[in-house]
């Protein structure tokens, strides 16, 4: 049993570290591996900062546990110790975690503000969640799209104004470092400033049977490509309905 527990512990520790330090390369759009916005970088930093501050406590606690299990097995002739308090020790293990947590707390203070308040906005997009699809409206261009990828220019502060017309949904694209519940009847705001790429996300608040299929796709493209896309959408809007199919396919070909 001794060896078993050691191997188990080591295995778990390795799994924990590898899992959290992004040891699984792949093409997943993952906030920890591929943060796509300054905010996501900061969130990643905050994650590791917190993790590295608390990991020693994890290892101390689990290490002591394993040591005790191995060392203090009942043996004939050895009397159990008699102590049952130690004020100094008790103060130490109250203060040490408390101080560590102060560091964690202070480190998140500024980021909480930045994640909630959009800086000077370059472009606004309205997001309307409806079971089980997303509608995006670009007020600047008068474009409305539904069940299509959100297309935005790279390196611009995009402010999303989100709401829902039925139940609570949550707009979440992991690589952007944001997630925001969209409540019916209420307008809320979130923002991102992303680098080029195609990003995946999904609704993150149970909204009904097809919640799992309420997926989000975002294409972050260059300014020129974006302008091109806007032109296309405007043309599509003014053109008769039968050409819609055509333009959609060319639109998605361009973004993929």
């Amino acid at each position: 049993m001794k060896t078993k527990s050691i191997f188990l512990f080591l295995g778990l520790a390795a799994l924990f570290l590898s899992g959290c330090s992004g040891g699984h390369p792949g093409d997943i759009t993952n906030w920890l591996q591929n943060p796509a916005t300054p905010l996501a970088h900061e969130v990643r930093h905050s994650f590791y900062f917190t993790l590295y501050l608390i990991l020693p406590f994890l290892f101390i606690a689990e290490g002591l546990l394993i040591y005790v299990i191995l060392r203090f097995r009942k043996k004939p002739g050895r009397e159990p110790a008699k102590f049952h308090d130690n004020p100094k020790l008790e103060i130490a293990w109250t203060i040490a975690p408390a101080i560590t947590l102060v560091f964690v707390a202070v480190s998140t203070y500024g980021l909480i503000g930045r994640i909630n308040y959009s800086p000077e906005s370059d472009m606004q997009v309205e997001v309307t969640a409806q079971r089980f699809l997303w509608k995006y409206h670009y007020p600047e261009y008068g474009i409305t799209i539904s069940e299509q990828p959100l297309v935005v220019p790279e390196d611009k502060v995009i402010t999303l104004l989100g709401t829902s017309v039925d139940v609570i949904h949550s707009w979440w694209v992991p690589a952007f470092g944001i997630k925001r519940d969209l409540l019916p009847g209420r307008i809320v705001e979130t923002w991102f400033k992303a680098v080029k790429g195609n990003y995946k996300g999904q609704c993150a608040e149970l909204c009904g049977p097809l919640h799992a299929e309420m997926l989000i796709d975002v294409s972050v493209v260059s300014q020129e490509e974006f302008e091109q896309w806007v032109k296309q959408k405007l043309a599509e809007k003014n053109a008769p309905a039968d050409s819609t199919n055509n333009l959609q396919t060319s639109g998605s070909a361009e973004t993929k």
Partner: peptide
């Protein structure tokens, strides 16, 4: 000021403001 509107597709109303900002 930005003016936004939202209507569920199940409520077939065209609902818009004369200006968006």
């Amino acid at each position: 000021v930005l003016f936004t509107t939202a209507v569920n597709d199940k409520l077939p109303i065209l609902f818009e403001s004369d200006k968006s900002r």
